[in-house]
Amino acid sequence: MSRAETLPIGMPSLSLFRSEVTTTFRRWRTLALLGVLAAVPVLVGIAVRIETSRGGGGGRGDGGGGGGPAFIGQVAGNGLFLVFASLAATLPFFLPMAIGVIAGDSVAGEASAGTLRYLLVAPAGRTRLLLAKFTTTVLFAFAATLVVAASALAVGALLFPVGEVTLISGTTVSFGEGLLRALAIAGVVALSLTGLAALGLFVSTLTNSGIAAMATTVGLLITVQILDQFPQLSAVQPYLFPHYWLGFADLLRDPVYWDQIARNLGLQALYVAVFGSAAWARFTSRDVTV
């Protein structure tokens, strides 16, 4: 065959990453996860709608409504708040669980299917394959977050009035700026999940069972979330990856409080560095016998 079919060795190629993305997003499991995430805002929106109509249509813009997830009280007054409420509702478990499934399955799933050996002799290259797996998981985190946000925005606009947004600090901004802040929040939420993505990737290199890796990652998530609740553990809690997750609300202040958000992103970067390196060290040195 002609030379045009052969690229020089060492030339960067996005083919594997692209293949990884299409393969991941074509699995019914991925679509089911996104479907469940899209359904959460629908349920929350309908619940709020039923609640407010029973309560006589009150609560307009007053932000009261004690209990329940953050921002839930403002939803009836402004549909845009359904975006914030849905992200706050899915961030503790639903969203990270979906990431845990994708990350945990990433390498171990290929191993249990046996396709890992064929990718490696192709030769995908172990570092390149790991990078493709990680970037695809992060991309999935963004997709999942956007699905929640978009579904919430649609349901919010359908069931409730939308308009100017009253921020936590009391200032009022235009609907357009509110939307922009919602987008920024979705970005921060997605980045909040990168630490878990790296952790799941590392777990995924440890076993040849996709199910075991997914279960372990999700189990770790739940354990850490519980540990984050005990006041006795306050000394270690700043190092737990979900500790600053709900800090995204600070983007709804004027001026924005960057402190918690910066800490969150720093912590995620630390997790990515530590568990990314661990995954790399493990995967590039291990025997692939499946």
């Binding site: 079919e5 060795i9 192709a122």
Partner: peptide
């Protein structure tokens, strides 16, 4: 090696496209 291993949820053609994409020297 040790029998074929395929992505059951992909078509035969898409399986080959994926394995070809894994080779960085394949244009």
């Amino acid at each position: 090696i040790e029998g074929p291993a395929l992505y059951g949820f992909l078509s035969g053609r898409d399986n080959l496209l994926r394995f070809d994409a894994a080779d960085p020297t394949a244009a």
